[in-house]
Amino acid sequence: MSDSSRIQGRAYPLGRANVDTDVIIPAAHLKTITRAGLGRYAFDTVRAEVGNVFDDPRFAGAPILIAGDNFGCGSSREHAAWALADLGIRAVIAPSFADIFASNAFKNGIVTVALPQSAIDRLLAVAEADEIEVDLETMSVTTPLQDRYAFSLDPFRRRCLLEGLDEIALTLASESAIRTYEANTGI
């Protein structure tokens, strides 16, 4: 995948902490049997607020979302990641992420970038007027104002994101190891 290593564009400066997956996509929209089309329901309750970032034309179609601590907490619903992906979001930058959400995001090609709160505060300010760039190759977030923040990514996840690997196919290649484990444990 050629352009998958760099994500560049405007960023929704959401900012707030503990954005749970019920806020990202309420349960009423989980009654679907496909992955598609959830973007229009994303952040329903936030969008009910006057002046929210998602309906601000400056950020329309932004590929990046900036949030506070513990982003994606709560329910394991992968619908949250599907909704973000459908909304066009390819990277979320926050001080920390809930574990299950981070895993779901990665499976859908969304990069979770963890940066300290001070960097988040700065990026929230920059995002009001400027674009932001997330580079997976160099593992850095940069702005046109010469900000540069390094982040880390799990090596396996980084490889999958960069190379677009099918995880199940990778695991099926370990079939003999799985069979040996089952034989040894009598499962």
């Binding site: 394991s76 992968e78 990641a81 895993s103 499976k107 199940i168 695991t171 099926l172 799985i178």
Partner: peptide
């Protein structure tokens, strides 16, 4: 708890 992609992974591989 796991997401749906992991549900698929477990169904297919039990890992």
């Amino acid at each position: 708890g796991i997401g749906t992609s992991e549900v698929e992974h477990v169904l297919a591989t039990q890992t």
